[in-house]
Amino acid sequence: MDKLNYKYLKDELTLEELSELKKKVNTMSDAEIEQDLYKIWLEEESIPLSIGEEYFDEMKDNIDTIIGKKSNRLSFSVRWVQVAAAIMLPLFIGLTIYFYQQSNIILTQEMIVSTGRGERANITLPDGTIVSLNSDSRLEYLPKYYNKKERKIYFQGEGYFQVHKDRKIPFLVNARGILVEVLGTTFNLFVRDKKDFAELALEEGSVMLLSTVSNKKVILRPHQIAKLNHLTGDILVIDDNCIQDKSAWRRGDMIFRNTELLEVIRAIEENYNVKIQVDCKDCLSDLFTGTLPANNLNEVLEIIERSYHLKSIITGKKIHLKQ
């Protein structure tokens, strides 16, 4: 504590030391503060004060005068508590201003959560909304404005949203070429920069999806999928009784139903961050239906090998599938 006190009076504290000093002061009793300050008082001549010695001497004289006027019946302990209060007041004021400034800095900074290839993450927003991020995804929002008049985030990648219901404050997702507005709902959103489409699969609640390219707007009901063309802004809405397949990645699965093998291969590449070359006659246009694990590449390759009579050769992150 002595070292921190001296460094504070010399205005040499780092941010971490200032935080440590605040914690220690909050846990100390009046008697402990009295002892520390009394020791500093006795050694004050050896301390170079950043506030100026003349100011400090004047403050000390004023304190002595005030204490003398009170009464000689005041105990030594009480007198030093008064001294401690007078000396610590600037410290507490300084700490209050510092932490107020730090909280304002945090509020004005943009909060960003992102995942790399093969990574996943969960985030709970200030209003209680839960977002699960698939690999290579990014979510941003401003704490200062979030949950005031609106709950607005910026998003890219793939995410599963469980939006906390609040009829007074809408939840807005601003992504590439689209704006999603909800009050409280559950949906999976797919918006990647390298894809020419965005897709929203609604499990529960109601969602308004707007194309910022064409200004076309649709309102989705549960078990519907909206597929938006980034180039034209057109939105196609289809009913899907297997809507939860779209968020199967959260359970560690990749589910395909009558999907061309080429698209399956692209999904495997994206999920595992690998490059796959397939040598087979016309097999890439074959339709594939099945479930592949999202966390076991060897098992995925074994399923593909058996289904299409292929053999895989792995070299680092490159995979060659050939007959």
Rank of each mutant, 00 (worst) to 15 (best):
I67N: 03
Q82N: 12
L37I: 15
V83S: 08
Q109T: 13
I93V: 10
I112E: 05
M28R: 09
I51Y: 00
K3I: 12
K39L: 12
M111L: 11
N104E: 14
A84M: 03
S103D: 11
S114G: 00
A84Q: 02
S77W: 07
Y6R: 07
L21V: 04
L9E: 09
T14A: 04
K69S: 12
E43K: 09
K60S: 02
I106W: 01
D61A: 13
L4H: 04
D57T: 11
R73C: 04
I67F: 03
I112D: 00
K70M: 13
E17S: 02
W80E: 15
N26I: 02
V113S: 10
I106K: 11
S77C: 06
V25R: 09
V81T: 15
E43W: 01
S71Y: 03
G94Q: 06
T96F: 07
I47K: 06
I63F: 05
R73M: 07
V83G: 08
K60Q: 06
S46K: 12
L21I: 06
F76Y: 13
K10Q: 15
V78M: 05
N104G: 06
I105A: 08
K3F: 11
E12H: 02
V83P: 00
E54A: 14
I93C: 03
S77Q: 15
Q101M: 08
V83Q: 05
N62R: 12
W41H: 11
R73Q: 14
I33G: 01
R73G: 02
N104T: 05
Q101T: 08
A86K: 01
D61F: 05
S77L: 09
P48S: 09
I66Y: 08
F76R: 09
V25A: 11
G52I: 01
T14L: 04
L18Q: 14
P90L: 06
I97A: 09
D61E: 15
D36A: 08
W41F: 12
L18G: 12
Q35M: 09
E43L: 10
E20I: 01
W41L: 08
D64Q: 04
D57C: 01
K70I: 15
S71H: 05
I87C: 01
I40G: 00
L37W: 13
L91F: 05
Q109A: 09
N72E: 15
W41E: 08
Y100G: 13
E44P: 00
W80T: 04
M28E: 15
